[in-house]
């Protein structure tokens, strides 16, 4: 980063100390809820009632992890305040990774292609198509959810290509692409208005002169796209990939209706299912829930740990654009 505006510009040392204190409090607040989930996941359900304000695990135990990750006998699970209906967090995490990775690859690539067309090619109605694409930003997802759902269900039947027959995938015995990974990815795989808008803005900023040489060499658009534009746009592509990955990981509404089968159920849906397990009971299985919550957060926290700098840069970068 270039030298920031005004760094080191604060007057008094007291002022700086107060400012740092404020910053520390903000940081603490950012972490505290996650820490609290960790603490609760290591406690027992009766323990958290007895000592609700104890910052350390109460009656410390790993049993919550055992029952959320493994498959201990049902009696022990029930004694710990759970039901027989715990889900496999690992499976859900795997599903989320598959879905988020798939969406990220497809969306970044296809939107880069579209953005190239909007930024570099001249064709009739270009602005109109672009505006139309952008207008999709205001379409509430709940609005298109059911028609999309119906379409996904009919996909296999109406298109009838053997190549689109996904019956070999888990859970796809009858309902088209519903409860399949492609079905979960499809609505985000080919385009989102934000991705195209974001990349177009970046491509517009790339100097034309770089391309001129290639044009003189007689390079076609495909070559210019792959050999010049894409390599020059890596920061933007990485930024978009990170944002897309996080958004896909966090998506709830679509997988909630289109991916309920356990074999493809992603973490957000699995967590929500976990919330209200027993009928008529209003007592949540807090320790089980917080364990599942924490386990579900671990992969994305790890990713964040590994790519921390990149993610932070990416967000700032998306802001400037």
């Amino acid at each position: 980063m270039s030298t920031a505006a005004g760094v080191g510009n604060v007057g008094s040392a007291t002022g700086r100390r107060i400012a740092w204190a404020v910053l520390a409090v903000v940081m603490l607040f950012s972490i505290l809820p996650v820490f609290w989930a960790l603490r609760t996941s290591l406690s027992t359900n009766s323990g958290i009632i007895l000592e609700p304000s104890n910052p350390l695990p109460v009656e410390a135990t790993f049993f919550n992890y055992e029952r959320v990750l493994g498959d201990p006998p049902i009696e022990e699970v029930q004694a710990a305040g759970g039901t027989g209906g715990e889900f496999s967090v690992l499976l859900a995490v795997r599903n989320s990774m598959i879905v988020a990775t798939g969406i990220t690859i497809g969306q970044v690539f296809f939107c880069a292609m579209a953005a190239y067309a909007f930024a570099r090619l001249r064709f009739k109605g270009r602005e109109l198509v672009f505006t139309l694409f952008l207008s999709a930003l205001v379409v509430p997802p709940i609005f298109t959810m059911i028609p999309n759902f119906l379409f996904m269900r009919d996909l296999q039947l109406s298109l009838g290509f053997t190549s689109l027959d996904l019956s070999w995938l888990p859970g796809s015995d009858k309902a088209g692409w519903i409860n399949t990974f492609p079905g979960l990815m499809a609505p985000f795989f080919l385009m989102t208005p934000f991705a195209i808008f974001f990349l177009r803005q970046f491509f517009l900023g790339i100097s034309r002169e770089v391309e001129e040489a290639a044009i003189i060499d007689g390079a076609g658009h495909m070559r210019r796209f792959f050999r010049i534009i894409l390599p020059m746009s890596v920061p933007a592509l990485v930024t978009l990939a990170i944002i897309t990955y996080v958004n896909s990981w966090n998506e709830f509404l679509w997988p909630f209706v289109a991916g309920r089968d356990e074999s493809v159920r992603v973490v957000t849906v699995a967590l929500n299912d976990f919330k209200a397990q027993t009928p008529g009971t209003t007592r949540p299985d807090w320790t089980g829930l917080m364990t599942a919550t924490f386990v579900a957060a671990v992969p994305i926290l790890l990713l964040f740990g590994v790519l921390g700098r990149r993610v932070v840069d990416a967000i700032q970068f998306s802001g400037i654009k």
Binding site: L90, V93, R94, N95, M97, A241, V306, L307
Partner: peptide
């Protein structure tokens, strides 16, 4: 980055 994402997905599926 892409390789990492793929690897993560593969590792996770192996775990699952």
């Amino acid at each position: 980055l892409l390789a990492l994402l793929c690897a993560l997905a593969m590792v996770a599926s192996a775990c699952g």
